[in-house]
């Protein structure tokens, strides 16, 4: 069981690097959809007894993170004139290096935190931190509004990995609330991206820089 979990987490980590090295927005969306699918399987592997609740959370996460949200974003893409993130603030090679540093730092940090009592799979906590940090890198170094939304999604994915540890502690209602909030957030962001592209004929957030001191 544990080796399957670790294999899954390694895959999730690899997908992080794929996002950092990719310029085609469409393939980033597919990558994050794949990551969402793997995340959805994670609770089933980590918890030995699979009840109705774990099953529902899994199905909900898969449906939302790998089907509904990616489709929403792909549809938003269809109306936009852009296909690639052309001018990231930091180059792809540097982003990959940053990603590697973030992953290393996550491993080091997780090793210093006491984990002995709960016994999570060894890679789970580092994978969670690394995905959160990768989300941050995407958020801060990419200039297209849609890529920033993708960074935010990765951040949420990383948090979800950590949340798997607390699946039994978190009441079902809260899990549903969290997923619902995520859905509405992406939905509203999608609408705003649409307005940005109509208003400025561009979805680069560099255009959104008139308000400053």
């Amino acid at each position: 069981m544990s080796s399957a979990t670790d294999a899954l987490l390694v895959l999730i980590l690899l997908l992080n690097f794929f996002v950092l090295g990719s310029s085609r927005i469409r393939s980033i969306i597919y990558t994050i959809a794949a990551q969402g699918l793997l995340l959805g399987v994670l609770p089933l592997l980590v918890h030995e007894s699979i009840g109705v609740r774990e099953g529902l959370v899994s199905v909900g996460a898969i449906a939302l993170k790998s089907v509904v949200i990616p489709r929403m974003l792909l549809r938003a893409m269809a109306d936009l004139p852009i296909r690639r993130e052309i001018e990231p603030l930091v180059g792809y090679r540097t982003s990959l290096l940053l990603g590697a540093a973030a992953t290393g730092a996550s491993m080091a940090l997780a090793a210093r935190l006491p984990l002995e009592i709960v016994h999570p799979p060894p890679l789970l906590v580092p994978a969670s931190f690394a995905t959160v940090l990768t989300g941050f890198i995407v958020l801060t170094t990419r200039t297209k509004a849609i890529t920033q939304v993708l960074g935010y999604l990765m951040l949420e994915n990383g948090i979800f990995i950590f949340g798997v540890l607390l699946l039994e502690a978190m009441p079902f209602l809260v899990e549903v609330g969290v997923l619902l909030d995520l859905f509405v957030a992406i939905f509203v962001m999608g609408i705003i991206i649409n307005h940005i592209s109509r208003e400025f004929a561009s979805v680069s957030t560099e255009r959104l820089a008139e308000l400053r001191e």
């Binding site: 959160v132 958020l139 509004a145 920033q148 935010y152 951040l155 949420e156 990383g158 948090i159 950590f162 969290v178 957030a185 509203v188 962001m189 705003i192 307005h195 940005i196 208003e199 957030t205 959104l208 820089a209 008139e210 308000l211």
Partner: peptide, 21 residues
């Protein structure tokens, strides 16, 4: 107002995501 809304939504959501963590 579009620019302001985008910043509010994105920065707010990221902040709130950290609070979730």
């Amino acid at each position: 107002s579009l620019e302001a809304t985008w910043k509010y939504l994105l920065i707010g959501s990221v902040g709130i995501a950290l609070a979730l963590l």
